[in-house]
C-alpha cells in the first residue's frame, strides 16, 4: 500500500466506524436516559418490589393522567386521579381500557414521568405499559399498575405525575419493528 492508499484506508475505517456509531447511539441514548432519568423514561421491564422500610414521615402525591393519541378509539381511565403514598410503600392502582369501536384493535400506552428525576426512584412492578394491549370490539379490560417509590426519593419532590398516552399499533408494524430494531427491547 502506498502512503496515499494507507491514509484513505484509515479515513474510510473511521468513517464506517462513525456511521455505525450513529446507530449505536440509539440504544446508548436509551440506556443513558434510563440510568440518568433524562426525559422521564422508565424501564420497560418489570422490576420486583424491594422490601424496604416505609418512610411514614412523608407523603408523596402520585397523579395519573391518561391521554388519547390519534387514531385509536379507546378510552383509558385510572381508577383514581391521584393517590397519596409513602416512599417505599407498594401501591396498586387499577386502570381500565375500553374499546368503543366495532373492531378488534391493538394499542399501546406510552408512559412518561414528571419530574424526570423521579423516574429514577420509581419502581414499576406491574404495568400495562410494558406491553401492547389487544382489545376486541366493545371490550373493557381492567389492568393493575403496581409501583413503589423508593425511599431515597429527593425530599423536594412532593408530586410525581405519571402520564400514559394511548397510541395505535398497526399489526404489521409491531413485527417489522422487532425485526429491524432488536435493540429497542424484546417486549415490543
Amino acid at each position: 500500500m502506498n502512503p496515499v492508499q494507507r491514509t484513505v484506508f484509515r479515513t474510510v475505517v473511521v468513517l464506517m466506524g462513525m456511521f455505525a456509531f450513529a446507530f449505536a447511539l440509539v440504544p446508548l441514548y436509551d440506556a443513558f436516559c434510563k440510568v440518568t432519568g433524562i426525559n422521564g423514561k422508565v424501564g420497560d421491564q418489570p422490576r420486583s418490589i424491594v422490601n424496604e422500610q416505609v418512610d411514614t414521615s412523608r407523603y408523596v402525591t402520585v397523579q395519573f393522567i391518561t391521554r388519547s393519541g390519534k387514531g385509536l378509539p379507546w378510552q383509558l381511565e385510572a381508577e383514581h386521579r391521584q393517590v397519596r403514598v409513602h416512599p417505599g410503600q407498594p401501591t396498586e392502582v387499577n386502570f381500565a381500557f375500553s374499546n368503543n369501536s366495532s373492531k378488534a384493535l391493538t394499542g399501546r400506552a406510552v408512559p412518561s414521568v414528571s419530574p424526570s428525576q423521579a423516574s429514577l426512584h420509581l419502581r414499576k412492578v406491574q404495568c400495562f405499559c410494558f406491553e401492547e394491549q389487544r382489545l376486541e370490539a366493545g371490550e373493557r379490560l381492567e389492568v393493575p399498575l403496581v409501583f413503589q417509590l423508593t425511599r431515597d426519593l429527593p425530599p423536594d419532590i412532593n408530586t410525581v405525575t405519571l402520564v400514559y398516552t394511548l397510541y395505535p399499533v398497526a399489526d404489521s408494524q409491531s413485527q417489522l419493528q422487532a425485526q429491524t430494531l432488536p435493540v429497542r427491547g424484546g417486549d415490543v
Binding site: 399501546r108 398516552t165 395505535p168 398497526a170 417489522l176 429491524t180 427491547g185
Partner: peptide, 12 residues
C-alpha cells in the same frame, strides 16, 4: 415503519 423518532412506537 420503524420508530426511531416516533413516540407512538416507543421512539423518542
Amino acid at each position: 415503519g420503524t420508530s426511531f423518532f416516533n413516540a407512538a412506537g416507543g421512539g423518542d
